[in-house]
Each structure stands twice: as structure tokens, then as C-alpha cells.
Design a protein around this nucleic acid. Structure first.
Lengths: 360, 360
DNA sequence: GTGAAAGCGCTAACAG
DNA sequence: CTGTTAGCGCTTTCAC
């Protein structure tokens, strides 16, 4: 654990004698500058900021006028020092470049901003150890940490929890608050969709077996297939990436299914890409369905039918939930999972009844 | 988990008697805890952390042992309060979901982490006003701000600069430090590539006219076309998005060019998508070249020939440069622009000499 | 080489 | 309703 050997010198930016007309005010106006200008004490200014109702309306007006004029901004670090609340929120994502995450982060920021929280973002590079280290170094500076797509083991997660209040997005572990998404239901919708399009024998290309959502998804698919009297051929597990999807193309073809479900969009896209390379026509010869509805999904050719994962909503829920936990709520009061939703685009089509019914 | 002793409000997380084997250590060990444990004063511990060479080796060893044992972490907010340095860096990006930005952010984080800086990330949603507001709210908490793809006007930028040291990535404005990328040279390489493939009459689909990089790119293309005796047909300007590219397809076809350069990859991808939809074969009937080399570029069919924009490097350079500025360097000492690099993939091909030389 | 003291900007009792 | 006081955790003179 690398210790921090502090920084060298360097000057703070300082105010430069805020003149009467406030033109000169350069930076770092403090609460006592405001107090002096408004002819009150620092505590009154502080109170005006934190408990406005306990301050005389007129005084308050004067204070806010000065705040405005001087361009005063509270120093959150100083405030945090005394309140014990940093008003900072850390977000750790597995890989920022993975199109799955940005919208979650945006959702988090949206809510955080609304609650006057600042977000510290870090990227673990899919590395569980790095992730835990990040938790360690971020923990002291934040009120809580949102882990998106955490790769940590349950033990590591437990350690992380000792360091700071933690909230999981799309992952679950007993005793750790989380925001869940209804993955199984998404798969159910996808299967039902294929059923409606007359498919009966379908494939499933799985994702990382270590991933909770993989299990939720495959279970959902199995159950739905059974419920609809369909045959589900499981085609193994691949990396949840473009390359992983491409690699699955042969198995898909070999399985002679008329449609294939995938763990996620990246797999679906890689798969379609390879299929197209083979000269297989999607969706005429084979329908494919993704999961997540990442932005890419509508840019492929044909556009991908997929299940929307409510990313922004999950991000928003994450900060709401985390704040509730900080305010003492039970981790157990598990809210209902966020709903998923099938998005039909061009990569699925109705199966012809006759086996050789496909003509270009 | 959150034990709330009678104390009405939130309690700070506190230590709970770190035992010899350090298992109990919960949180918030302070410098004086360490001092006490090591039998020295707080200032000595502080010194050991910030100026190790001024502390007796043996004492130091004892101190570090306790730091380790107790799991002490410096409270950066408290340190910042006295040093005037927050050790925080803000990054504001136009749109996190734009695949162009994540790698820049990663580069920034990499360097920031190495320098023991924490990154605060914010997304301006492409909105200049929101961006300025973010600068305002982030400024007091950071040592400097990196603006990636800033949408602010020069005036807004000037205001921002009053609030905190600012550094621009891939944008320039006089008096504002920036890390530049050699956009013009990238276009030169692209044009040269097409020339080598026998193309003579090529198109250029432009991006936002307000964007500096658009101008650099189109200028580079013009100059290179002239230098190589080629005809460059400018096909107007579109949104730098998938949709913008698709919208440009008709103009491209009408222009009867054998190859087309685009402002960026998203445009190129949208364009190819639409072209494929029309039944136009890429690259056999028309070659297309993107710019940026976003991850998507190698996932299209065919994979996109493009110019790599050194995003990670730009991010790294950004924090280096910003720190140098903070240490008093001149904003003018403009380093050389970062180099770009042509990446040849499948969307360009050699033009047949005979007009009807194309067979599938 | 080390400790004592002061204070960064702010909030939180507690008086008044 | 408002001012005074104390102190959050840390660094930094300044003595010793």
C-alpha cells in the first residue's frame, strides 16, 4: 500500500483585498470575509447557509447579497472536516470504455449533482485488486462508494465494506446493499418474442460464469424456454466482448438453431459480425437478440433487437439508495429490481413455417 | 452496520481500538493516533510523511510501522486546508457516452493516480452553460481542471480561467494552456493513403464548423489534396454522429467520388451504414476513411480505416502539463502537438484503373 | 531531530 | 436571533 509522501510547496490562490465594489475579488473568499462585509459573525453566515430558517430574514438577505457580490463558495473540505460528511461520492467502474458504464455514471452524476455531491470517478481496469486498492484510497475522502460491475470476490467486497459504505450496481452479495435489475425478466421477454416469431429451437451464448447477471439471465432464459415449450441450446460461455461473440459463431451455426440469445450486446454484435463475414444472413437465416441495449446496438446492420438495461435509472437509484443507507436504512430493505424492456429492431424476424422458406 | 449512539446526527466513522493484529481497525485513524502509538509528536509523524529525510531513520521506521499497523490514511481534506493544495483534479467532458472521451479520461486517471491526485469527473452534456457552472462548482475543490472537448465560448473560457487553472484537450484558445494533437497531419496521412490507392477525386464530410479540430482537419485535407494533385470535394458539415454520417450519404453518392474522408469515425460509421443500406459496397465501390480510431472502428463491417487520435496519451499529457502550469510554467511553452497515425483497415481499397474494374 | 503552538475554513454547542 | 468558543486533522514556523 503506497503511502502518500505529501506534495511540495506551492501557494494557494488567494483573495486580493476584495474592494468595496468587489471587482478585485480574485479567489478564496472565506466565510469571515462575508461575515465582515455583512457586519455579522461567521457563525451567522454559516447558519444562513446550513439552517436558513434560523436566521433573520433581513440579515440573511444582507448575507446572501455579500455572498453573491464577493463570489463566496463554501470550502467543502473545511466543512467536511467538522461535519464528518465529505459530500463526495466515489464511483468505481470496471472499464469506462465499456459502453455499458457511461450511462450508469451519468445517472449517478445527475442525482449526485442534485444532492450537491461531487463524484470521484475511478476505473479499475477490470482488476479486482486494483479495485480494492481504489476503494482503499478513495474511502477516506468520500461518504460512500458505488461499485459498478465490481470484479471483487466476496471476501474483497467484505474488506471494501469495512473501509466505506458501499453500494453495488448489478451485482449482489449478501449483506451488501445493491440496486438490482430484473435480468431474468428481460430474458423472459426476449424468449417470448422469439416464440411469437415462431422460433422453437434457440441458442444461448453465455457470458462470464463468475458473473451474477449471467446466471440470472441464463436462468431466465431456461425457465422461459420451458414455459413456452421451446428448446434452449446452451452454447457455452464466452468473453462478454466483440471477440467473444465472434468466437461463438461456429457453435451457433453448428447448433442449427433459428435464433440465438446472447449474454449481452457486445457478444451479439461480434457474433453478427462474424456471421455476416461467413455470408450468413441476419435475420433471414438466423435471428439474434442481445442484452443491455448499449448505444452500439442501433448502429449495427441490421440494428440489434435487444433488452434494455435501465442504466441511467440504475445510476440514479444507486445514489438514492446509498444516501438512504447512510441515513441509517437497513441494507435488507431491498427495493424491487428495476424493470428491463425488450427493444425490437432488425436482427430478429419471423421464422418461415416451411423449413426452406427463406429466399433473399 | 451504522451504529448510531444516541447522538442525533450522523456520526463520523471512528476507530475502534485497533488491536495488535490490526483486525479491528475500523476507520478514521488520525495522525495523533499514530503519534501516540509511536511515542512521538504529531508533527514528527507529519514530517515523516512529507519530508522523510528530515526524520531520524529509526523514528521513521517506528512511525511507518504504526501507520501500517493502524491502517492510517492521511486525510487529504485536512491537509489541503493547510497546504492550499487539494490534490484533486477535475475533468469535465462533453459527453461521457461519446466513445471518444473514455480513453482520454483513463489517460488522465492513470497519470493523476501516479501523482497521487484524485480525479473528479463531470459530464457537461455538451452544454456550454452547464459546463461553466460545473467549473464554478468544482473549482474550489480542485487544483486544476481539464476540459475535454469544451463547448464553451472564448468568453466563457476566460471566465472559467478566473475560477481555476484550466487546461484544454483538443481545443485551443489564446492564453489557455492546452494539449494539442496533430489533426492536420492525420488528414495528410489519410489523403496520402488514398492517393497511394489511386484515388484522385475524393470527398470530405465535415464536422461542426465551430470546432477547432474540424478546421484543422479540413485544412489538412485541403493542403494534402493540393500537394498530391487530387480533387477534394467538400460535402458540407454534419453533426459528428452516426445520424450525421447517415445523412451525408446522399451527398457522397451524388458527388461521384471514389473515396470519402470524414471529420470523425462516428460520421464514417453512420455513412457506411447508410451506404450499405443502399446496397453500395464499401470499399469496392467507395472507400471511406474515418478519424479518431474509436473502439467501434474495428467492429464495423468492413472495419474502418481511420486516423488514430492519441487519446490516452493526450490525457496523460494533460495532467503533466497542468501540473507544470501549476508549478509556474508559462502557458506559452507549447509542447509539440501529439502525433496521429493512420490505421489501415478494410474500408479503403485500391481503385481499379478501369472504371468498371469492380467485381464482387 | 523533535515538540509546542498556531491556524487553514468551517460548523456546533452554548451563552446571551 | 446572534456572537463566542472550541476544535475537526493536518502542516508549519519556531524554538529547543
Amino acid at each position: 500500500m503506497p503511502l502518500d509522501f505529501g506534495c511540495n510547496r506551492l501557494q494557494t490562490r488567494r483573495r486580493s483585498g476584495a474592494t468595496a465594489n468587489g471587482e478585485e475579488a480574485s479567489v478564496a473568499v472565506t466565510i469571515s470575509d462575508v461575515a465582515k462585509a455583512a457586519g455579522v459573525s461567521a457563525s451567522t453566515v454559516s447558519r444562513a447557509l446550513t439552517r436558513p430558517e434560523r436566521v433573520d430574514a433581513e440579515t440573511k438577505a444582507r448575507i446572501f447579497a455579500e455572498i453573491e457580490r464577493l463570489g463566496y463558495k463554501v470550502n467543502r473540505a473545511a466543512r467536511g472536516l467538522v461535519t464528518g460528511r465529505t459530500s463526495n461520492l466515489a464511483v468505481i467502474v470496471a472499464d469506462l470504455a465499456n459502453p455499458f458504464f457511461p450511462d450508469i455514471v451519468k445517472g449517478i452524476q445527475l442525482r449526485a449533482h442534485r444532492r450537491n455531491l461531487t463524484t470521484l470517478l475511478a476505473d479499475s481496469g477490470e482488476n479486482p485488486e486494483a479495485e480494492l486498492n481504489l476503494v482503499g484510497s478513495l474511502a477516506p475522502q468520500v461518504d460512500g462508494i458505488v461499485l459498478c460491475g465490481s470484479r471483487m470476490s466476496d471476501e474483497q467486497l467484505a474488506k471494501a465494506q469495512q473501509l466505506a459504505p458501499v453500494l453495488l450496481v448489478n451485482r449482489s452479495a449478501s449483506g451488501v446493499p445493491a440496486v438490482a435489475v430484473d435480468n431474468a425478466d428481460g430474458m423472459r421477454q426476449a424468449v417470448r418474442h422469439l416464440r411469437a416469431l415462431r422460433h422453437r429451437r434457440i441458442g444461448y451464448v453465455g457470458g462470464p460464469t463468475t458473473s451474477r447477471s449471467h446466471h440470472d439471465r441464463v436462468d431466465g432464459a431456461r425457465r422461459a424456454a420451458a414455459d413456452n415449450g421451446m428448446e434452449l441450446i446452451e452454447l457455452g460461455n464466452v468473453e462478454p466482448s466483440f471477440g467473444g461473440g465472434a468466437a461463438a459463431a461456429d457453435s451457433v451455426l453448428l447448433a442449427e438453431v433459428s435464433a440465438v440469445l446472447t449474454y449481452n450486446d457486445m457478444i451479439a454484435i461480434g457474433l453478427m459480425h462474424r456471421l455476416v463475414g461467413y455470408g450468413v444472413r441476419v435475420p433471414d437465416e438466423i435471428s439474434v437478440v442481445g442484452f443491455d441495449d448499449i448505444p452500439l446496438a442501433e448502429m449495427t446492420y441490421p440494428p440489434l433487437t435487444t433488452v434494455r438495461f435501465p442504466r441511467r435509472e440504475a445510476g440514479e437509484a444507486a445514489v438514492d439508495r446509498l444516501m438512504r443507507v447512510l441515513d441509517g436504512a437497513e441494507p435488507e430493505d431491498d427495493a424491487a429490481p428495476l424493470p428491463t424492456e425488450l427493444v425490437v429492431r432488425g436482427s430478429t424476424t419471423r421464422l418461415q413455417t416451411s423449413p426452406e422458406g427463406n429466399h433473399a
